[in-house]
Nucleic acid binder design. Structure first.
Length: 639
RNA sequence: GCCGAUGUAGCUCAGCUGGUAGAGCAGCUGAUUUGUAAUCAGCUGGUCGGGGGUUCGAGUCCCUCCAUCGGCUCCA
């Protein structure tokens, strides 16, 4: 007998060789039906693998991450099986589960697959799934594995096998399809009830652009048709909220072929929105003793040689511009920190004035490959809500805490309630890759984690993700549709103060090197506004929305009254406009609804006589009549 | 940058195997003076993404460049 410990601490005894599936069945029939895989001592395995010794066990269902990924991984094999039937001779790369769904990379030789071919493949998958083929695991020797794929003529699998250790190699088979795979997999194919192949795209073999481009087929699958339906509806909602679409419809920003790809142009309404965000942060920063500065958009090549960016990024940047006579070289600034370092270093600094917090909404220019550009979230020019804090080692933690507090304040103010922090630390195996002393790194890494804990921020630690110059903390924000975005960032930097030879005179009258913190609560204005558009679906919080209300006169004769109401509201600090077109009220309401202006104030004979307005809330309809004063109170209280 | 797809009026889209461009909305003009999601009528508007080629003839076929979309890769 063996002992099985469950996540709740319960321990049960079972016969040696029992499977997770048997165990599930011993608990309840429903659980046995729902179990997709098992987590045994922290490792996810097939629910049908015999268990030979005492273990801790978690049964994985659709509600567990490991359950979902097993489900999708098995779906990828099903896709491969269907492809092998429909396209004999197809060669397979890899076919993993991804965050949502799965893909398989294939080499079709001279043949091609396009979107139109997907439904047929989907049908074949469903047909194969219904056969209820078991996913069978088989341990094979390296020689066997090689000869199998040699015979099949699949060079990609051969390459993968070559890198594996003999004795560690397993095959999985369902139906007639055999794949190299370490698993785990579902019990059989019949659990895969709802399948949607979503996309086909090119992908380099092993992500290496020097190697062959394979065809990648993406899909998702679910245990129930209803779940697929919900997923498709979520995708549809995401499509409706796409900031590129809403940005154009609401006239927030545009792109121009003549200005250039990836260079966003902010239209009046977008500018109004963005300026309010900037003003809000500027005010917060003044409260926290930041010092605003303004620096040029270009800097001499020497600046970036000093900062080290030239060496690392010079070739992949916009190339320098030159003065006509002297041929001096200037780069468009790809970041603000070198300029800010010059500000810090322009005169001697005393420990008494530290920390120095230099802030600037600085527009930077980075060359992004043409295929990378994407709306406002991936651009070639963007404005960072940047600040660089120069402080002593003793001040580091307090400064970090203050930045965390500021960033969380900003996110909450913009109705992002759901966020976590990714803490990026050194790779402990390769300490030599990083600059700065071991002692400083240890201190800073410990400090970041403590600070995050102190403010109650949930963190995920990523080893080896730190920049070479220091550890960092990135805010991962979930939007209204549950999608994750990386927004604000806080980075500790030991490198630039060194390179710029920045100093301060300590109380001991000796020179010391300050530590620098880079931080940007929004990240970039472009990206933040892009995410905010998708988060809110274009229905912005009242305090930043370009227009808070529209006054809709029933007919021309009420325009003077509308103007007096407008004046009254504007005096109270609200912003809006009168729709004075000679159109029906129905038309004006429809247009205003579509432009997502939060409030409509309808004025006609009744209102004029009683000095009132009829309030309509966007998306909610008629709210009844109120006085302008009451409306001002309503809006003010909502802000 | 690479693979694949797309590019027709301000917007959304139609235009079969090559025969010389069309609708709805928007805009303009006129009528209507309107009560909670589209009043009616008329009109304007396109070197069919740019350039080159094949052809008697190209929105339609070929080449090339640009932009956009979906991926790959990268992101100080």
């Amino acid at each position: 007998m063996i002992k099985v410990t469950f996540p709740d601490g319960n321990v049960r005894s079972y016969e040696k060789g029992v499977t997770a599936l048997d165990i599930a069945a011993s608990i309840s029939e429903g659980l046995a039906r729902n179990v997709l895989a098992a987590k045994v001592n922290g490792e996810v395995i097939d629910a049908t693998r015999p268990i030979e010794k005492d273990i801790s066990l978690q049964l994985l269902t659709w509600n567990d991450k490991g359950g979902k990924s097993t489900f999708w991984h098995s779906s990828a094999h099903l896709l491969a099986e269907a492809l092998e039937v429909l396209y004999p001779g197809v060669k397979f790369g890899i076919g993993p589960a991804i965050e949502t769904g799965f893909y398989y990379d294939i080499d079709l030789g001279d043949r091609q697959i396009s979107l139109e071919d997907l439904p047929a493949i989907e049908e074949k998958m469903k047909e194969l799934a219904q056969r209820k083929s078991n996913y069978e695991r088989k341990e094979v020797s390296k020689t066997e594995a090689l000869s199998f794929f040699e015979a099949k003529g699949d060079e990609y699998k051969l390459e993968l096998i070559e890198e594996l250790e003999d004795g560690q190699i397993t095959f999985y088979q369902q139906g007639d399809f055999v794949d190299l795979c370490k698993g785990p997999h579902l019990v059989d194919t019949s659990k895969i009830k709802a399948i949607k192949l979503t996309n086909v795209a090119g992908a380099y073999w092993r992500g290496d652009e020097k190697r062959k481009m394979l065809t990648r087929i993406y899909g998702v699958s679910f245990p129930k048709q209803k779940e697929l339906q919900e997923y498709l509806e979520l995708m549809e909602e995401a499509r409706k909220r796409d900031h590129r679409k809403l940005g154009a419809e609401l006239e927030l920003f545009m792109f121009s072929e003549k200005v250039g790809a990836g260079l966003p142009i902010w239209l009046p309404k977008g500018t109004a929105l963005r300026s309010r965000l900037e003003d809000f942060l500027k005010e917060e920063q003044l409260k926290r003793n930041y010092t605003p500065v303004i620096t040029p958009h270009i800097g001499k090549k020497e600046l970036y040689i000093t900062s080290g960016h030239y060496e690392k990024y010079g070739q992949d940047s916009f190339q320098p511009i030159q003065t006509p006579r002297e041929s001096e070289e200037f780069f468009l600034k790809p970041m603000n920190c070198p300029h800010h370092c010059e500000i810090y270093g322009h005169r001697p600094r005393s420990y008494r004035e530290l920390p120095v917090r230099i802030a600037e909404f600085g527009t930077v220019y980075r060359y992004e490959q043409s295929g990378e550009l994407h709306g406002l979230t991936r651009v070639r020019s963007f404005t960072v809500d940047d600040a660089h804090i120069f402080c002593t080692p003793d001040q580091l933690k307090n400064e970090f805490l203050d930045v965390l507090d500021l960033t969380m304040h900003v996110l909450k103010k913009l109705s992002f309630e759901n966020f976590t922090a990714q803490v990026s630390l050194r790779d402990p195996e390769q300490k030599e890759k990083y600059i700065g002393s071991d002692e400083n790194w240890d201190r800073a890494e410990k400090m970041i984690q403590e600070a995050a804990d102190e403010v109650g921020l949930e963190t995920v630690v990523e080893l080896g993700e730190a920049a070479f110059y220091g550890p960092k903390l990135d805010f991962m924000v979930k939007d209204a549709l549950g999608r994750s975005w990386q927004l604000g960032t806080i980075q500790v930097d030991y490198n630039l103060p060194e390179r710029f030879e920045l100093e301060y005179i300590g109380s001991d009258n000796a020179s010391h090197r300050p530590i620098m913190i880079h931080r940007a609560p929004f990240g970039s204005m472009e990206r933040f506004v892009g995410v905010l558009i998708e988060h809110t679906g274009g229905k912005f919080p009242l305090w930043i929305t370009p227009d808070q209300f529209a006054i809709l006169p029933i007919s021309d004769q009420y325009i003077p009254f509308a103007q007096s109401v407008l004046k009254q509201l504007e005096m109270a600090g609200l912003r809006g406009y009168i729709d004075d077109r000679t159109e029906s009220v129905g038309k004006k309401i429809r247009d205003t609804e579509l432009s997502k202006v939060p409030y409509m104030l309808i004025v006609g004979e009744k209102e004029q006589e009683s000095g009132s307005v009829s309030v309509r809330r966007q998306g909610e309809g008629d709210q009844g009549s109120s006085t302008p004063e009451q409306f001002i109170d309503l809006v003010t209280s909502e802000i």
